[in-house]
C-alpha cells in the first residue's frame, strides 16, 4: 500500500441479491497509471466497476479514492470527487444531441469557465464530434459513440476514469486510437485509468498494471509488461 495510490480497494465483496459475485477483491491503482482488468466473461469485471462507482452497494470491504473512504457517498456525488465511469454499452443518451451529451458531463461543475474550456478541448480531441454537434446520440456510429462517452467523461476533468469495455464492437483501428489516447492523457494530464477489457492484447499494450480476475477474485496483479511478455505467466492466467 502506498500513499500514491489514487484508488485503493481492500476486501471488496459485492453481488446481486443473495449471489455474491466479488470475493475479497484487493486492488491498488497508483496515480497517473493505467490498470487493465482482464479475465474471462463472468469473471466479475463489470461488477467490480459498478461497485466502484457506487451503482452496486458492496456487502463488505473498503473503497478509498485519494485516501477518502467512499462508503455511503451517493453515486451522483462521486463525479464531484473526481471519479468518472463510462459504463458498458457506453451510456450515450440517444435522445440528446452530441453537444447536450457532452455538456451534461460538465453540468455539475461550479467552475463554468473551465467546464466550457474542457468542452472545447474535447471537441479538439475528437474532431468527428465537432462536425456532428447537433446530431442525436442514436445517430452516431459505434466509434463515435465511444468517443462521445469518453469525451463526456473528460469534460468533468476526472482524476480517475473507469472504462468498461471501450473496444466492444469497434474496428481494431479505432480501438488502437482509443488506447493511444488513454496513454496520451495519462502522460499529459496525469489521468489515472482503470480499464476493463475482454480485448486482452490491446488492453495490456497500453496498461502499466495488469489485473487478472477469475470467478470474482483477483488472481494476480503484476506489471502489464510482465503479463504481456512472459509466456508462462500469460498462458497460466489468460490461456493464450
Amino acid at each position: 500500500m502506498s500513499s500514491d495510490d489514487l484508488l485503493l480497494v481492500r476486501g471488496l465483496e459485492a453481488g446481486y441479491g443473495a449471489a455474491p459475485v466479488l470475493h475479497a477483491v484487493d486492488l491498488s491503482v497508483p496515480r497517473g497509471t493505467i490498470a487493465a482488468v482482464v479475465g474471462a466473461n463472468g469473471a466479475g469485471k463489470t461488477t467490480l466497476l459498478r461497485t466502484l462507482s457506487g451503482m452496486l452497494r458492496p456487502t463488505a470491504g473498503r473503497i478509498a479514492l485519494a485516501g477518502e473512504d467512499l462508503r455511503g457517498i451517493p453515486v451522483e456525488q462521486l463525479v464531484r470527487r473526481g471519479m468518472a465511469h463510462v459504463p458498458e454499452g457506453r451510456g450515450v443518451v440517444g435522445e440528446l444531441t452530441v453537444d447536450e451529451n457532452l455538456r451534461l458531463g460538465g453540468l455539475w461543475r461550479r467552475d463554468r469557465a473551465d467546464a466550457a474550456r474542457a468542452l472545447d478541448e474535447v471537441y479538439q480531441l475528437f474532431t468527428p464530434l465537432a462536425r456532428r454537434r447537433r446530431h442525436l446520440g442514436h445517430q452516431l456510429s459505434g466509434g463515435e459513440r465511444q468517443m462521445l462517452a469518453l469525451g463526456r467523461a473528460l469534460v468533468g476533468r476526472p482524476r480517475l476514469l473507469l472504462l468498461d469495455e471501450p473496444s466492444l464492437g469497434l474496428a481494431p483501428r479505432v480501438v488502437a486510437q482509443i488506447m493511444a489516447l488513454l496513454r496520451q492523457l495519462r502522460d499529459s494530464t496525469g489521468l489515472t485509468v482503470l480499464l476493463v477489457e475482454q480485448n486482452v492484447r490491446s488492453a495490456l499494450s497500453v496498461a502499466d498494471q495488469g489485473v487478472v480476475m477469475a470467478l470474482g477474485r483477483v488472481v494476480t496483479a503484476t506489471p502489464a509488461a510482465e503479463l504481456r511478455d512472459d509466456d508462462d505467466l500469460r498462458h497460466a492466467y489468460l490461456g493464450f
Partner: peptide, 22 residues
C-alpha cells in the same frame, strides 16, 4: 442546464447519476 438535467434523468437515469445529476 436544469432542463438538460431533467431530460437526461428521464431518458437515462443511471447514466445521469454517474454524471452527477440528482
Amino acid at each position: 442546464p436544469v432542463g438538460l438535467r431533467m431530460r437526461a434523468a428521464a431518458f437515462a437515469p443511471e447514466v445521469s447519476r454517474l454524471l452527477g445529476v440528482n
